[in-house]
């Protein structure tokens, strides 16, 4: 069930390219536990974020400069639909459910 451990992906990105906008749903062929690369990147960043109010959308963008805002937004929407993350102080701050 739980995907153990602090999966901290050190720094931000490295890979450029792969500019396809992830389609939500559909037959998932994601690399890790059913998430796309973008989704797991976003999730890992949120998981790794220490502050109680959660990671802001702005913060996400600056951590993932290679992704454009709509891709990040989609990932966030997806993760929140799945229950992996939830919004905190406002709709722009997110925390992971399996953090703590």
């Amino acid at each position: 069930n739980k995907s153990s451990g602090p999966l901290i992906t050190g720094n931000s990105v490295g890979a450029s390219g792969m500019g396809d906008v992830g389609s939500l749903g559909g037959s998932a062929s994601g690399p890790t536990n059913g998430l796309t690369l973008h989704q797991s990147q976003v999730l890992n960043l949120i998981k790794a974020y220490p502050k109680p109010e959660g990671l802001s959308f702005q913060e996400l963008r600056s951590q993932l400069p290679s992704l454009n805002a709509s891709v990040i937004k989609q990932a966030v929407d997806f993760l929140s639909n799945e229950g992996h993350i939830y919004s905190t102080v406002d709709d722009e701050h997110f925390k992971s459910t399996d953090a703590e």
Binding site: N1, S80, N81, E82, G83, H84, I85, Y86, S87, T88, V89, K95, T97, D98
Partner: peptide, 20 residues
């Protein structure tokens, strides 16, 4: 703050449902 707790509870619920 109450809102955050609600969001969290809802999220955990979604997560649980998906793994049910």
């Amino acid at each position: 703050l109450e809102r955050i707790e609600r969001n969290k509870a809802a999220a955990l619920l979604r997560l649980a449902n998906r793994h049910a």
